[in-house]
Nucleic acid binder design. Structure first.
Length: 486
RNA sequence: CGGGGAGUAGCUCAGUCCGGCAGAGCACUGGCUUUGGGAGCCAGGGGCCGCGGGUUCAAAUCCCGCCUCCCCGACCA
């Protein structure tokens, strides 16, 4: 399963630590194709669990799944000027197919607005056809210069929501609603706290009106944009002539939105919770919420222990717990412990002859640091209730720990530029500062410190007293969150 | 595209300076003994030494050309 080596220290080289976890926890493999990734079954199972809960939330907010073509005619992408300018440098283009040169090149979708709206426009005639609330689970391709497993890959899996509305207010409401859905998912399922807010114009979706995002802070104090929600205004409706007839009989353009999260979230999960022993998964997204490791010395004990393990498993399964019995022969219990710790399983249950005798199981929580007293003896009779409650508790503890770490790495009220630069270069983290609103100033700080304005935070995240000045000394027009980011 | 590094077994690499049978650890296969924190012994399998050319009796090693990957920057969900 692995090469038996300890992980490197995350303090020394977070990037190497991250890559080792990805490989040792069997989440992904390198692809022979540049910058692409192979998601292995264990990693894909995490994605499936993410898909499941997100999809349920999309359905609960009235959305329906659909599927649209992988290829965009180049002319369609060209329809929205800012959109094509934003995405053209990173598109892959098919020029030949069927043994001949194509009359019109096809662009492998970097996002699907340019294929969805030319199609969906024919579904919309009247105000009674609106809103259109669609979601697509798909892969997209963006030819980025630099790639990292899950965080930035040439090809990635995601969901993209696309909606059309009768008014700007409705579109804005939808944009904000889905940002909220993302936040709920990230915090309640991933146990990853985020700051929500609006992006500055320089970070806005190409062709959109307003972009909102969720920003998380990784363990190395770098920010990760975990999801975005865009109010596209009428830009795409105009580009693709998507109109409807109002009650009064006028033909007017729809207001559209789009929003997406990707397999990048798996990277966020790793970098929010992992430690030197490997991955740590929140119970709600763990392929196995518990793994039972049977321990025996001879065939007789093996029979007894496996029988007891089987009973515990059956009871847990009946209670809806995702459980696995690691009954591999010829692998020592210790080796199994390391395997499942590396793969982030929240609770390990050990069942040996002594436990069978005492009618109990030995439970070990992944989030408790290695040490003498981390094992808890749990009576077999109440094991299912104990474990169910413990999974809930672990989910909460993980969120609290991540939020505390994020808050501890957050600084407010910095106005002096030297102090800011020093902060970013030494400890990193989120810095709440003022901003003059000038894009030139934003760019200057970026060039200078490699840090960017991550988000203009929503009200609940703002400081009690608004900053007076921007880092440049000019009066601040709004508070912003700055950080170095992935 | 600029700066640096590396291509040898599934993985991590040694061997290259100074040419002479293709190597180690881990992983894998079989056998026996083991199993409460990464088991031991024995026996095996596995190679286009990145690619092409050149020098030489002889090239992983020297020479020429090419390709690829990784790291740091510029781009980004």
């Amino acid at each position: 399963m692995d090469n038996g080596k300890k992980l490197t220290s995350q303090k020394q080289d977070f990037s190497a630590w991250y890559n080792e976890i990805v490989h040792q926890a069997e989440l992904a493999s390198h692809s022979p194709v540049r910058g692409c990734m192979v998601i292995r079954p264990y990693g894909y199972r995490i994605w499936e669990l993410m898909q499941g809960s997100l999809d349920a939330m999309f359905k609960a907010t009235g959305h329906q799944n659909a599927y649209f073509p992988l290829f965009l005619p180049k002319s369609a992408l060209d329809r929205e000027a800012e959109h094509v300018e934003g995405f053209a440098p990173e598109t892959a283009v098919v020029t030949h197919a069927g043994g001949a040169k194509l009359e019109e090149p096809l662009v492998v979708r970097p996002t699907s607005e340019a294929i969805i709206w030319p199609i969906v426009r024919d579904w919309i005639h009247s105000y009674r056809d609106l809103p259109i609330l669609l979601n697509q689970w798909a892969n997209v391709v963006r030819w980025e210069m630099r790639t990292r497993p899950f965080l930035r890959t040439t090809e990635f899996l995601w969901q993209e929501g696309h909606t059309a509305h009768v008014s700007e207010e409705e579109a804005e409401e939808e944009t904000r609603r889905m940002l909220g859905v993302y936040r709920t998912f990230m915090e309640d399922w991933m146990a990853m706290p985020v700051i929500t807010g609006r992006q500055t114009d320089s970070e806005r979706f190409a062709g959109g009106l307003r972009t909102y995002g969720c920003e998380a802070l990784m363990k190395d104090n770098k920010a990760l944009q975990a999801g975005t929600s865009h109010n596209l205004g009428q830009n795409f409706a105009q580009a693709f002539d998507v109109r409807y007839q109002t009650e009064a009989g006028e033909h007017v353009y729809v207001w559209s939105t789009s929003w997406g999260v990707s397999t990048r979230l798996i990277g966020g999960l790793i970098m929010t919770h992992g430690d030197d022993e490997g991955l740590i998964l929140p119970p709600k997204l763990a392929p196995y919420q518990t793994v039972i490791v049977p321990i025996w010395r001879n065939d007789e004990q093996r029979g007894l222990v496996l029988e007891a393990a089987g009973r515990v498993r059956a009871e847990l399964e009946a209670a809806g717990v995702r459980v696995h019995v690691d009954s591999r022969v010829g692998v020592n219990p210790g080796a199994k412990y390391y395997d499942w710790e590396r793969r982030g399983v929240p609770i390990r249950l050990e069942v040996g002859p002594r436990d069978v005798e005492a009618e109990s199981v030995m439970a070990v929580r992944r989030i408790t640091p290695a040490g003498a007293d981390r094992k808890t003896q749990v009576p077999m009779a109440g094991a299912t209730e104990w474990l169910g409650a413990m999974l809930v508790s672990i989910q909460d503890e993980m969120f609290s720990a991540a939020r505390d770490r994020r808050d501890a790495a957050t600084v407010r009220g910095v106005e002096d530029y030297t102090e800011y630069r020093n902060l970013i270069e030494t400890q990193g983290g989120f810095a709440f500062t003022g901003w003059c609103g000038d894009a030139g100033c934003e760019q200057q700080v970026k060039d200078d410190t490699k840090s960017t304005i991550r988000v203009i935070p929503d009200e609940e995240f703002r400081s009690e007293t608004a900053p007076v000045n921007c880092l440049c000394g000019a009066p601040s027009v709004c508070e912003v969150v700055r950080a170095r980011a992935y």
